[in-house]
Design a protein around this nucleic acid. Structure first.
Length: 198
DNA sequence: CCGCTGATATTCT
DNA sequence: GAATATCAGCGGG
């Protein structure tokens, strides 16, 4: 995808960019993913964001220009990754929570030998594991670097619900996913399920 | 399918 | 020192 066009889309408001990433292709180290679930983080206005308390060595990349990868290490053993969005200085980003492996299936299976195909990239840390994304990829340029992002046509429909695993701001429905897709992570229920009307 | 629990080290207070 | 944008393995239904 044209680097200028990618930067143009990613520089928009994070709540518009996040659903735009659904259906996009993420490519690294021989595996390609179709993204099915993401979460928006809005920087300094957002208690749930790593950048809420300002600039630190870890969050430096979030404050930089859009179109780069923000990777972080958590729970003592897992790496997760985000797409940095918005204008430089805003520290907004979109966490990549899940996807479907559409190419490089054998490689992804080798990296996650105990997972079913459905679970290969179902969850933010699993996603990085399947794609072999580590802290070494922090700051990578998604238009021209080894980790590449290619936007597709916007999905025709998506659903939203509360973000997963947060203490600070669980009330914001900033998680976006492709309705009915089996690769969407189900660690915590999405929106409270409404009983079908009788 | 569901819920519970231990593992583990970086990050910031 | 405490908390953590998680996951795999286990046991029960």
């Amino acid at each position: 995808m044209d680097p200028a066009q990618l930067a143009e889309v990613l520089s928009g408001p994070v709540l518009e960019v996040a659903p735009r990433l659904l259906g996009a292709r993420l490519h690294h180290a021989g595996v390609t993913l179709r993204l099915t679930e993401v979460e928006a983080y809005a920087g300094s206005d957002d208690p749930g964001s790593h950048a809420y308390r300002g600039r630190t060595p870890r969050t430096e990349v979030m404050f930089g220009p859009p179109g780069r990868l923000y990777c972080y290490f958590t729970y003592g053993m897992h790496t997760c990754c985000n797409v940095v969005t918005g204008t430089e200085g805003t520290a907004s980003a979109v966490l990549l929570r899940a996807g479907e492996v559409v190419d490089g299936l054998d490689l992804a299976r080798a990296r996650r030998p105990r997972s079913s195909d459905r679970d290969l990239a179902r969850g933010p840390a699993r996603l990085c594991s399947a794609l072999a994304i580590t802290l070494g990829e922090n700051g990578a340029d998604l238009a021209t670097g080894e980790v590449r992002l290619e936007l597709g046509d916007p999905v025709t429909a998506y659903e939203t619900g509360p973000r997963v695993g947060l203490r600070g701001a669980p009330e914001r429905p900033w998680r976006f996913w492709v309705p009915g897709d089996p690769t969407v992570s189900a660690y915590r229920p999405a929106a409270p399920l409404r009983r079908a009307p009788r």
